[in-house]
Simulated scan of single mutants.
Amino acid sequence: MTRQILVLAACSLLCICMLPSQVWAADSDKPHKKMTLREKADAGREASKKTEQEQLEKAREAAQGMSEREQEILERQQYGEWEQAQKEKSQQQFNDRLSREEKYLKQAQETAKQERKIEKKD
């Protein structure tokens, strides 16, 4: 049994030695030491600041979007008021034209009566 363990260990050692050096280089780039409490606290603060900045940016974007939507609504309301004013103006012009037509019709009728009277006098 010990012989089997020795053979297995030797085979494992050979396999490990044959691994490409790039794998070892990649592993050496990663720090394997434990973080101290101070380092953990600093990392937590940085993560918190980053999260806070992201949330602030999202809030700014949302506020700007809301401001733009409010402006669009105000413009539509102002356009509606302008449209209503134009309708009222055109209705007033129509009423004025109608009253002028009635006035001209009345004058024409009176003129026609006067002409008849003149014809009767001749």
Rank of each mutant, 00 (worst) to 15 (best):
A43N: 01
K34H: 04
W24H: 05
K117T: 07
L74Y: 01
K30R: 14
E61Q: 15
R100E: 10
M1R: 11
Q107C: 07
P31A: 07
Y79N: 14
M18I: 13
C15M: 14
D96H: 04
K120C: 06
Q77G: 00
A108W: 00
Q86N: 03
Q109P: 06
E110A: 04
E119K: 05
Q53P: 07
E57Q: 10
S28D: 08
E72K: 14
E119I: 08
Q55R: 15
D42C: 06
D42Q: 15
F94M: 07
E54Y: 00
K40Y: 05
S67W: 09
R97E: 07
Y104C: 03
R38G: 00
A108V: 03
A47P: 04
A25V: 10
E54M: 05
Q92N: 06
A47C: 09
Q84Y: 06
I73W: 02
E81S: 04
L98V: 14
K87T: 01
K40M: 05
T111Q: 07
Q55L: 14
T36D: 01
Q53W: 09
C11F: 13
M18K: 14
Q64K: 08
K121S: 12
R45C: 06
Q78I: 04
L14M: 01
K87R: 08
I73S: 09
L14E: 00
V23Y: 13
A62P: 08
A112I: 02
E61I: 15
D42N: 13
R3S: 09
M1E: 05
Q22S: 13
I118K: 11
R45S: 11
S67N: 12
K49M: 07
V23T: 10
